[in-house]
Amino acid sequence: MAQRPRQSSGSTTASQSGGATRRRGSELEEAILQAAWDVLVEQGYEGFTYEAIAARAQTSRPVLYRRWTQREALLQATLRYGWPEPVALADTGRLRTDAIAMMKHFGQSNRVEIITQVGAQLMAYFRETKTGFSDLRKMMLSPERAGRVATIVKRAVERGELAAMPTSPRVLTLPVDLVRHELLMTMRRVPDQTIIDIVDDIWLPLLHRTAAAQD
């Protein structure tokens, strides 16, 4: 099963004398979300219950209900907790090298392992909610994550490297979409040359044509 890409705080649940340690605030929430992530990847959506998560976190169901009154809210919080970290935001002074550095980070094989395996565990959720992987992607694309490619493109415009900021979000996210496709099709790290080809042969020419048309 997919392993969470970040380490939990490792907060203890027992004192040195063997009694229960009272956890509060962020420490308790970390323990709950780590437990929820573990339950999800081990038991799937069918096993993703308040009872199972509370038992795994060594807490009570009312503690979970006070924070997440609906199962879907708890699921979304769990996915955001365990999802791969946003890709590194390079600043090399050139759009091409910024994009290649970002896509190399995004193209690491452990990302697709996590996304694909957790996605497989959510098939029952997709059936129940009549949603799919594209809806999951939209849910996980917070403004902070979605705006990283736009940031390096905006820098290029400010440097005069690009005539204008493309208005189409599809144009901006194209390299991410193509690298993701490679990950899902091969289930392994995307080769550096493939990333260079995506940036040089497809994305940069399209960016310049789009920017010139808008200028």
Rank of each mutant, 00 (worst) to 15 (best):
V112C: 06
V176F: 10
Y65S: 12
Q3M: 11
L33F: 15
D135H: 15
L204S: 07
F48I: 04
M123Y: 10
E128V: 07
R94N: 08
T69R: 14
L174M: 12
F133A: 15
M139Q: 15
L184F: 15
Q76V: 15
M165W: 04
L206S: 01
D192Q: 12
R180E: 14
I115A: 13
I196V: 13
P205G: 05
T186W: 07
T116K: 14
V157C: 00
V149Q: 02
V153N: 05
L174Q: 07
L89M: 12
T78V: 01
S9A: 13
T12R: 13
T69Q: 13
D135I: 06
I32P: 02
A163K: 08
T116Y: 11
A77C: 03
T173F: 12
A164L: 05
Q121Y: 12
D98K: 00
P143R: 02
L89K: 10
R94Q: 14
E85V: 03
E113L: 09
R80P: 00
A124G: 14
E51A: 12
V41Y: 08
D91P: 05
D177Y: 06
M185E: 12
R180L: 13
A57I: 03
V41W: 00
R23L: 15
T21H: 10
E72T: 15
Q16A: 12
R23P: 06
V41K: 09
E182P: 06
R71H: 07
L136C: 03
I53R: 02
M102R: 02
Q7C: 09
Y125K: 00
K130Q: 15
I152V: 08
R96E: 09
Q76I: 13
T92D: 08
M102C: 06
G132I: 05
I196N: 02
L64Y: 03
R155A: 00
T59F: 13
T186M: 09
F133W: 14
P169Y: 07
S168W: 08
G19W: 08
A54L: 04
G107K: 06
D197L: 07
E51Q: 11
L183G: 01
T131G: 06
D135C: 09
S142N: 04
M103L: 15
P62C: 04
S142P: 04
I114W: 15
E144H: 11
T131W: 02
T186R: 15
Y125G: 04
S9V: 10
R94V: 11
